[in-house]
Simulated assay, not measured.
Amino acid sequence: MHHYGDELSLRIVDVSRVHALDDDATIAALMVQLVERVGMRILAGPLVGTEQGGPLQSGKSAVLILAESHAALHTYPELGQAFFNLFSCKPFDESTVLATLTEFLGDFTVEERALVQRGDGWPQQLHAAAEHWRRDRGAARDA
């Protein structure tokens, strides 16, 4: 048994191209290019929405639903900051993620970074998944 996948979460600050954080077309292109470059498949999106309010609320949120899981970006143009999240059952190269973010957003500082292995004990092969399901189903029936 292995873990299900990796989840990368970033908070970036001091984004040099702050205008890109408020541009639907740039954000959509960034999301599509990023997941394609790390070899993932888009099932739905990108969906980009706008939130109005003060500097701590206003910005854009974008999401892609992937065959491998999801990717999300939340921007705060007035602050020059963003949060990025990629969760995938397929391994990916973090340096490709950072290079693509830099290409679209310019220079920035990574203020927070977390790379977490999610789904410990998740069966990776169909046979193992079927056995796991049978065990759980049998245990529930016997309870």
Rank of each mutant, 00 (worst) to 15 (best):
R41D: 10
V32A: 07
V13R: 10
A129S: 13
Q33F: 04
R137E: 11
D22L: 01
S88K: 04
F84L: 01
Q57L: 12
F108K: 05
L64T: 00
V110A: 08
V110I: 15
V15G: 01
L79T: 05
E78S: 10
T109L: 15
H3K: 06
L105M: 11
C89Y: 12
P77D: 00
L43G: 10
H3A: 07
A20P: 00
I42R: 01
A128G: 08
W133Y: 14
P77E: 02
T50M: 04
A143D: 10
D142S: 15
A82Q: 01
E94D: 10
L21N: 02
A72S: 08
A143Q: 10
L126D: 10
T109S: 14
T50V: 10
A128D: 12
R135C: 05
V97A: 06
E103V: 05
W122C: 13
D107L: 14
T100N: 09
T100P: 05
E103H: 14
E112A: 15
I12E: 01
S58C: 05
Q117F: 12
L73A: 00
L101K: 07
V63K: 01
W122Y: 14
V38F: 06
L43W: 09
D14I: 03
L8I: 04
G45K: 02
H19G: 13
S16G: 07
I27R: 03
T102M: 09
R37L: 08
E51V: 07
V116N: 12
G80M: 05
Q33H: 13
P123I: 05
V15C: 02
L43A: 11
V18C: 10
V116L: 14
L105G: 06
H70C: 00
F84C: 03
V32T: 15
D6N: 15
L105V: 12
A28S: 11
P46E: 03
L30R: 00
V116G: 08
A25Y: 07
Q117P: 11
R141E: 13
F92C: 04
A44L: 13
L115N: 11
E78A: 12
S58E: 09
G119F: 01
F108I: 09
H3Q: 04
G39H: 04
A99I: 04
